[in-house]
Structure formats: structure tokens, C-alpha cells
Amino acid sequence: MSRVSPADLPRREISANLYKSGVRAMPVTALVGFLIGVVLSYLSALQLKQFGADIFIVNIIGLGIVRELGPVLVAILVAGRSGSAMTAQLGVMRVTEEIDALATMGVQRGLRLVFPKVVALIVALPLLVLWSTAIALIGGMVSAQVQLDISYGFFFQTLPRVVPAANLWIGLAKGAVFGMFIALVACHFGLRVRPNTESLSSNTTASVVSAITVVIILDAFFAIATRSIGLPS
């Protein structure tokens, strides 16, 4: 009887969380992605010009953004945006005894409060990575055209050749793993909040700082684990 049936799955909460932490994060991830793409491309262009290695801009932008910057940037933005919101939400629910009220109704808080957030971020983060990566590449492409006179057509043709598809999969996998950990860290700190304001603020801070640190540590592990995949040898 203690099995969870499909009817028990909190679908409403999952979709609400998907909307809040996924759809609503699209403008900010797009803006940041675009600007990072432009800046990275501009700075690289300055260097590459000196060596006459202009066309390598596609490699640098492509690999850097698809494999590293896209997932990490999105994860950091989401940790700051949704991670803090999740911790604060659970924390306030603790302060207002809402979590206690759920418990006295026999509702499992793991299933009702933690699970939807974790699922939502596991799904939303890779999608945001895809979105933000695409826009960052556009930013880089625009900047490369302006700085180095590299045409959009050339950029499009070269990109798949110099950045194997494996890199995209690595980026998306990173997104899913980062999302899971951000949500778990946020819920952990949220449920640790004691019923006072000091505890709420310190746990929210701890949640964001820990989530970002965890993301960067995980990214290092990914870099080691995938060092032989998708890179030109």
C-alpha cells in the first residue's frame, strides 16, 4: 500500500514549477546568453586577428558555449533565481506552519514539495541550456560577422563540423544533472529553516552559494569524465 500510484503524482505542482523556473527564466537566460556570446566572440576576435586565425572563432565560440558556458551560465542563473525562490518558499511554509499542516493531513512532503521541484528542474534546465546556447551562438555569430567579417553562412556550415554533436549531448546532460542538484540543495536548505527570519535569510544565502558551488564542482567532474568525448584530437 505504501507504493506511489500514478494518480498520486503531483502533476499540477510539476507543471507549475516548470512554468515558474523554466518558462519565466527564458528572457533572462536569453539576454545573458546573447551578451556572453557577443563578448566572448569580440574578445577572441581581437586575439585571433593578430594571428590571422580568424576562422577558428567558430571553434572557440562553438565549443566554449555548447559544452561549458551554456550549461554553467544557465545553472548559475537558475540557482540564483529558482533555487533561492524554492528555499524561501519552503522556508516561509515552515515559518507559517504550512508544512506542519501538510504533515498532520498525512501528506508526504517529499512527494508533494520536493519531488515536483526536482522533476521540474531536471526537465527545465536542459531546455533552458538549449535555448540559451542557441542565443549565445547567435550573439557570437553577430559579433564575428562585425569584427572578422565572417559570414553567417560560413558560421552555420562550419559549426557542425568543428563542434561534434556529442558536445551538445554533454551540455544537455550537464543541464539535467545541475538542475537536479540545484533543486535538491534548495529543498534541503528550505526544509532546514527554523521558524524565524534570521534562519530564513541565512538558509536562503546558504542555498544559493552551495548550489553554485555544487554546480561548479560537478562541472569539473564532467570535464574529467568527458575529456575524451567530442573534442578534436
Binding site: M1, S2, V92, T96, E97, E98, D100, A101, T104, M105, G106, Q108
Partner: peptide
Amino acid sequence: GGIARERELRQRFGVLFQHGALFS
């Protein structure tokens, strides 16, 4: 005795918290 039994027992009592604890 399992989640189902615990739940059933909890349905037999209601709690009014000091500040209401309504889901905001």
C-alpha cells in the same frame, strides 16, 4: 503500519494551528 494506515488515522483528527497555517 505503512503510509495508508497513518494517513487514515490522520484523517480522523483535525488541527487548527495558532496562525491558521493556511496555504498561502
